[in-house]
């Protein structure tokens, strides 16, 4: 099996305050901490599990700045063989269809059986790149997969639907599968793997290296344009409990019991 896995570096904003910057079209990311996108981490693990079971190679692809090398090396330490990072400010990264076009350009020139991506990036939540990538490559796909069985020339993919139901589909390879979180238990990178990862190939490419012209992937070529970012007004009817932590706990407990909520 020749597998590609696409990963993204994303900020952890679960507990961070997010502010729109002066341009009004981006956020101030100076105080964010970054990591590999959650679903992509599961995709890396799935790719490595397949390699361990069936043999073959795992190539890691990432579109992003040099800071993403930490996440790429980590994927290599877990079992990836080599990596390509596309770093080019001319790409309109806010448009998932342009990202898909760039990733397709990397993969197209090579032989492959399987491309894995996370099903969703936690920062933009577009859920579009993987399926768009399949169409760019002209291969079949399955999105939001929580169990994957690789057979001869095909895969059985269990797509996670609403309510926890799975839709099982059989797909002829080569194919693109978008991976849902929880499909496996991502490993920690072994110490030896981390050492070896430093020696593995990590190529940094520009769109010119991929045979893409600027006007195929830049903002002007996108059919949608980000107009403005803004912090939504949160309409909350919640009663905010005030005080020191212990006081809040006492007030809340009293409200629950005396208010007949329990």
């Amino acid at each position: 099996m020749k597998t590609f896995v696409c990963i993204k570096r994303v900020p952890d904003t679960s507990e961070a305050e997010v502010k729109v910057d002066a341009t009004g079209k981006d956020v101030d990311s100076s105080r964010f901490s970054f990591d590999i996108n959650d679903a992509d981490n599961y995709a890396v693990e799935e790719a490595v599990l397949i390699k361990e079971a069936k043999g073959g190679t795992v190539q890691v692809i990432c579109m992003g700045p040099q800071d993403a090398d930490v996440m790429i090396r980590m994927a290599l330490a877990k079992g990836g063989d080599s990596a390509i990072r596309i770093d080019d400010p001319r790409i309109n990264a806010v448009d998932p269809l342009k990202v898909a076009k760039v990733l397709a350009a990397v993969i197209k020139s090579q032989e492959f059986d399987l491309v894995l991506t996370g099903c969703m990036a936690s920062d933009d939540g577009s859920m579009a790149v993987g399926v768009a990538l399949a169409e760019e490559l002209g291969v079949p796909h399955a999105a939001m997969v929580k169990k994957l069985e690789v057979e001869d020339g095909k895969v059985k993919a269990y797509r996670e639907l609403e309510g926890g139901i799975a839709e099982v589909v059989e797909i002829t390879l080569p194919a693109v599968i978008t991976i849902q979180t929880g499909i496996n238990e991502p490993r920690y990178a072994p110490i030896r793997g981390i050492r070896e990862a430093q020696k593995k190939e990590l190529k940094v490419l520009k769109i010119d290296d991929l045979g893409l012209a600027e006007d195929e992937v830049n903002a002007a070529s996108s059919l949608v344009e980000l107009q403005k970012l803004y912090i939504p007004e949160v309409v909350s009817r919640a009663e905010v409990i005030e005080g020191a932590p212990e006081e809040k706990a006492e007030i809340m407990a009293t409200k629950l019991v005396k208010g007949g909520l329990l």
Binding site: T13, D123, G125, L223, V224, L229, I231, P232
Partner: peptide, 13 residues
């Protein structure tokens, strides 16, 4: 974006 912390308006071209 960012799990509901930021809204974005787009225009179609």
């Amino acid at each position: 974006y960012y799990q509901g912390k930021v809204n974005a308006n787009f225009v179609f071209k």
